[in-house]
Design a protein around this nucleic acid. Sequence first.
RNA 1: GGGCCGUUAGCUCAGGGGUAGAGCACCUGACUUUUAAUCAGGGUGUCGUGGGUUCGAAACCCACACGGCUCACCA
Length: 489
Amino acid sequence: MARIDGITEQRREKLRKIRSLGIDPFPHRYHRSHTNKEAIAHFQRDDCAPQVSLAGRIMAFRTMGKATFIDVRDSSGKIQAYFRSNLLGDKYELLKEFDIGDIIGMSGEMFRTHSGEVTLKVNDFVILSKSLQPLPEKWHGLTDVEKRYRQRYLDLISSEEVNRIFTVRSRAIAAIRRFLNRRGFIEAETPVLHPAAGGALARPFTTHHHALDQNLYLRIATELYLKRLVIGGFDKVYEIGRIFRNEGISTKHNPEFTMLESYEAYADYNNVMSMTEELVSYVTKNVLRKTKVSYAGTTIDFTPPWHRVTLRDAVREQCKIDFLEHADYDSLRDAIQHYGLNVDESPSWGKLLDKLFSTYVEPHLIQPTFIMDYPVELSPLAKRNPDDERLVERFEAFAGGMEIANAFTELNDPIEQRERFQEQEKLRALLGDEEAERVDEDFLLALEYGMPPTGGLGVGIDRLVMLLTDQQSIREVILFPQLRTKQVG
RNA sequence: GGGCCGUUAGCUCAGGGGUAGAGCACCUGACUUUUAAUCAGGGUGUCGUGGGUUCGAAACCCACACGGCUCACCA
């Protein structure tokens, strides 16, 4: 990438010229009296000619000899500014040293042009930052996807839509906090560096602490620490935090992503189910002012109550297979073959079932749906279903064909939890399953002090934002998605 | 990691063996209410990188890099 070409050399020359005139092209501060939006609103509301000082990035120049219009944008929006030679005198010539992309401060009074646009008539202006690189083209903007992600600031400058997506993301997270805080939840911050990566089935990133001379893992879930807080007496606790999983990258997976986890003492997964649909519809209504969203050409309605169906019935409906009647690997595999279904080899019964589900059921779950009652093999941290000990009280929420939440009645029996961990260790040893849970003695010790019956929830924030913004790729809702580092030179 | 597609000016894109192109941006000039301002003039380039084929390669072949989609893994 030629960092210094003709255009940037011209701009460096302008920079030198500005300095030679005794002007600091990067002054320390500027007093704004209004944002662009406020200035326009003030003029329209009061029908006067208020004196204002505004600042922002120059987005366009329209010069007509001794008069110039420029468009200036700040985060509130665009405003047009009008520069006249006979108002500004010699200073008008200084405009020649300004370029699209520069940050400018301007003062003057508001008026309306002949064509009706509310405009700032400038009587003084100052450079606030000189831009040395040309901005993307004004009409088409930036469409090179790689460049959009690597230089997201350019994407944000040139695309209102991208700007909107990340504004929605921010508002959605704020709404989640508001919802939970109003219900009496406390927000916690638990460690990112874990001595053992637990709380989910996933490969972790590893790192090393030099002073402790100890290997550490980036967290794959916040679960086990948040449960310690429930044991510590925080009856309602949550964390919105970055999770790291050392797995493939796709339109639905980024190695680091944001998850909400909440835990509520004395609640079970039925209570959590109600809270989940209320939470999501609250967020949707607050952020978009409606509960129906358009996603991938269809309409998704988040209004509670959502569909509820057991995993068993869902799989039976789509695949004709009752997994409880095919409770071992060979039986389930044979049933899949018998019905002519196409499911890849999997290392275990549970993974085979998971595969069957994600291939034949998940893509159909467009409207918000709770899939309930998972096999105990797939859920080492969930409490058994009292009606069928092969199952646990667990649900996953789906919308738009994606999993957006996972929740269960938490296993709080320390003896059984130890047995479940040991089962996972067996899977790891037998099948080389690197994602299996490890026995976490520190967590087991905490459980032995007694954890109240608790309902836990995990929500994939990125995927929720995808649904709210009608984006089919997770990279479009993450400001700086993971890309391979480009070789320099 | 596999398959398919892409990479040409600052940006958006044409060009598919014979002198490197357009629009926007930029530069020069005109213009005191324009708004994708207009008018006249000016191409500013390692055609992703490295090899190969050829009299001649941006183009054809091979390898590599980066990206997109997809499959595998997962949430």
